[in-house]
Amino acid sequence: MNIDLSGKTALVTGSTAGIGFATARGLAESGAHVIVNGRSQASVDNALASLKKSYPTAQATGFAGDLTDAAVCDTLVKTHPAVDILVNNLGIFEPKDFFDIPDSDWTRFFDVNVLSGVRLSRAYAKGMAERKWGRIVFIASESGINIPVEMIHYGFTKTAQLAVSRGLAKRMAGTGVTVNAVLPGPTLSEGVTAMLKDEIAKSGKSAEEVAAEFVKAHRSTSIIQRAASVEEVANMIVYVCSPQASATTGAALRVDGGVVDTIV
C-alpha cells in the first residue's frame, strides 16, 4: 500500500516526542506538510531537527505553545488557518490513587486530554467539510475501556475522547471528513520510560525488558506480552489519515496488543 499525502497539511499536537513525533515523521514520510507542536520553542526546534535528520526531505514547520490555553489555540488557528489532517495527540498521564486526586487534577486532565482536541476540531472541521476532505484523529487509549485503577482520572479522559470522536464523526456525515479514535495500549514512549526509570536503574534491565514485565504484571490480558513501539502505533494513525481509510469513521481502532479482551 502506497500512502500518498502530498499536498496535505497535517497538524499533530504534542508531537515533539513519543507517539506524536513518530506520527509526525510517518505523515511527513508520506508526503504531508507537518506542523509539529510542543510547549516550548526548544522542544519544537529539537524535534524539527531530529525529523530533518532522519528524513531530510520532510516538509515541516513548528508551532510552540501550550494548547491547553484557549488563547494559544486561537493563535495557532490564526497562524495555520487550514489543515487537512488533525491528530489530537496532546495528553498527559500520571499514576495516582483516586483518594489523592484533587479537583484541580481532574480539571487539568480534562483540559489537556479532551478540551484541547475539542477546540481544534471545532476550529478546523468546517474548513475540511468545505473542501470535502479531512481527517481528524483522537489519540485515546485502551485505558478508556479498561479504566486503570491507578489512573482513574486519566481513563476518564480517554473515555471522553471516544465519545467526542464518535459523536463528531456522526456530525460530519457525508462531508468527506472522517473522525476516528486510535487506542494504543502500553507503549514504550519517552514518558513511559521515565515512569519506569527507577525500576530500570534498580534492575539493570533494558527499558524493553522492564516494560514487558510491567505489561505482564499490570496488563496481563496483553496478547503480545510487551509494550508496543511508538512506530507501531504511528503506523495505524498514518493509515487512518490516508485516502485509503475513507470508509473508516466513527471507529475506535485498537493498537493495544490485545489488552482489551473483547472480539469487537
Rank of each mutant, 00 (worst) to 15 (best):
A17C: 12
I223L: 14
F99I: 13
C73V: 07
M236G: 10
G176H: 09
T175N: 03
L90T: 04
T248S: 13
V177D: 10
D69P: 07
Y124T: 01
N2G: 05
I224L: 12
T157P: 00
T23W: 00
V44M: 13
R122V: 04
W106G: 01
T23Q: 06
I224T: 14
R166K: 10
A245R: 03
S50Q: 15
G258C: 02
V77E: 13
P186R: 10
N2K: 04
F21R: 02
V12R: 03
V34P: 01
R122N: 15
Q41T: 12
A173V: 13
P102Y: 00
N46W: 05
A47K: 02
A169V: 02
P95A: 13
Q41M: 08
V255F: 05
D84C: 06
R122P: 08
D66A: 03
V255P: 06
T79Y: 05
S54R: 12
A32F: 02
M1F: 14
P184K: 02
D74L: 07
E142H: 14
A125V: 15
L76Y: 05
Y124S: 07
R135E: 15
T107G: 00
E190D: 10
I136M: 10
S246L: 03
A82T: 12
W106F: 09
A251S: 07
K158W: 00
I263S: 04
V77I: 11
A211L: 04
N235G: 14
N37C: 05
A252G: 08
G38A: 08
L48C: 04
Q225M: 06
Q244E: 03
S50D: 12
V179H: 11
S43D: 04
F99G: 15
D261Q: 12
K197L: 10
M172P: 03
M128F: 13
R226S: 13
G7H: 00
V179W: 06
I152E: 03
D45M: 04
G204C: 04
L253Q: 07
M128D: 11
D45I: 06
D45S: 08
I224V: 12
V44D: 11
F99T: 10
S165R: 02
G31V: 11
P184L: 03
S121G: 15
S50L: 14
A24L: 03
T159K: 14
W133M: 05
V87R: 01
S143V: 12
A123G: 09
N88T: 02
T107D: 10
N146Q: 08
G117K: 01
V77T: 11
F110S: 05
V264H: 07
S43F: 02
E150K: 07
I85P: 00
A71Y: 07
V260F: 02
T157D: 01
S222P: 07
A28S: 11
G250E: 06
A49E: 06
R219T: 12
S104H: 02
S6M: 01
R39E: 14
T9A: 14
T79M: 07
S246M: 09
E150A: 15
G18S: 08
A70C: 02
T16E: 13
S222Q: 03
D100H: 14
D198S: 07
F98W: 15
K8H: 05
L48Q: 00
M236W: 09
E208I: 09
G167L: 10
T221R: 15
I200W: 10
A58R: 05
H218E: 12
A201T: 06
